[in-house]
Design a binder for these strands. Sequence first.
DNA 1: GTAGGGTTAG
Length: 549
Amino acid sequence: MSFNLHILTTELSKSFLTLLRTKELHAFITKSHLASDPFYATRIVKLYSINAKLGYARHLFDKTPNRSVYLWNSIIRAYAKAYKFRDALSLFLTMSGTETSPDNFTYSCIIRACSENHHREWLKFVHGRVLVTGFGLDPICCSALVTAYSNLDLIEEASKVFGRIQHPDLVMWNSIICGFGSCGYWNQGLLLFSRMRNLGELPDGYTVVGVASGIAEPSLLSTGKGIHGLCLKCNFDSNEHVASALVSMYSRCNCMDSAYLVFSSLLQPDLVTWSALITGYSQAGDFRKAMLFFQRLNMQGKKMDSILIASILAATAQSTNIRHGIEIHGYVLRQGIESNEMISSSLIDMYSKCGYLSLGIRVFHVMSQKNISTYNSVIWGLGLHGLASKALEMFEELLTIGLVPNESTFSALLFACCHAGLNSVGKEIFKRMKDEFCIKYKTEHYVYIVKLLGMTGELEVAYNLVMSLPEPADSGIWGALLSCCDACGNVELAEVVAQRLIENDPEKTVYKVMLSNIYAGDGRWDDVKKLRDTMTEKERGKCPGLSWI
DNA sequence: GTAGGGTTAG
């Protein structure tokens, strides 16, 4: 092996050298006493990190006496990219105490890591450090902060950071527009988009992906089409990120024909775009097309990743035909990717939804590494099959092995209790969720607890709970209460609840129909007539269901 | 420094 400094520097600037080559270069710089030079050490650390050899990178870092800010940043980034948040953070804190202060790149890296690991408190702490060290208006720190806050659903904080910037650059605009879009405030995102254009800033692919990500329901289809038009005009549609964003935008709008048109206009759609199309068909309930495209992709000899397999398994679970699911399981085994946690969770879910809970549990037991999602899937499966006590045992087991439950775990547990009518156990779980695990209740948790209370003879308690919510209850929660009133035959309360629902959503006739049925059940035919008279011909004219059997 | 597809939500 012979290098001179010129060759060495050229070699080190290549970003994808193999592990073997990296080791050779490392050996050379050690032999030439260059390893203590932070310039060479930084490059080798980066190469080890790309080759997933964090241990080697750390060893070199520890042995380098003069650590430049670049060297610190590359080791922190290596840990952050490997999702080793604690290590990245601890290095950042150590660095802050040395003479080599963190720069804007260090902060942006650790800010991103806080958001990816859902650490709101640490994010606020790092933001504080950004402010006191004079980086409060730095575009690199601020765009990272805007993205991090919006990814953690703290759009107000993101907005505050953005608001302090006098002349935002394109990246900053993109970050805030995407933030509003992903938090569900599509209209705010669009307003900012117009403001940006009025200021003469030209959008790029990131901008349109941000705006398109906010288009989340069929009523926004025309806006979505406008965005698509803009992409065609600006030639963004050949950008892979833009194309997949458009495919999934049309899928969310229940417009699979347009989604397919975008997809078919691409010469070589990538895996993400295939996945967007397949998921679109799957979520539209067209699992046949989902399977067809999966098979077409397979014929091309492309290797699927875990997200795509999870999506296709969701489609086969919907079909409730075990045959397709088994086919995919076979593919997973042949590829040797059955240990992937996302895939296993989807397999468990698929088997339990197709009625083969025992096969799902078998998948669960053979897994070497289980995470919270795997437990969530198995708890759902047990709940779905009425085995609430087994679901609760699983919950205790996951706590014993040190896993941390999340909001889905509690959805699954409450669902299991609801399904089995376990009133007091369900109440206990609901309480522990907030008191012991500090997880905020979401609509679905309220829906389950309301159903549980209402269906087990505590309708009044359920009503009082809904009335005492910190924010006004949405239609899902009131709807759960209405179905309990129906089941218990409580017409008085049903009237109050239905009134709320009709006020909230006057367009929806289903609540009027439900109330009318409750009146009918009680023999109050005059009230049925009065209510039906308030409905238009179209609202009453729904075709009754017809069975072939 | 910013972007795309996501398993559990019966």
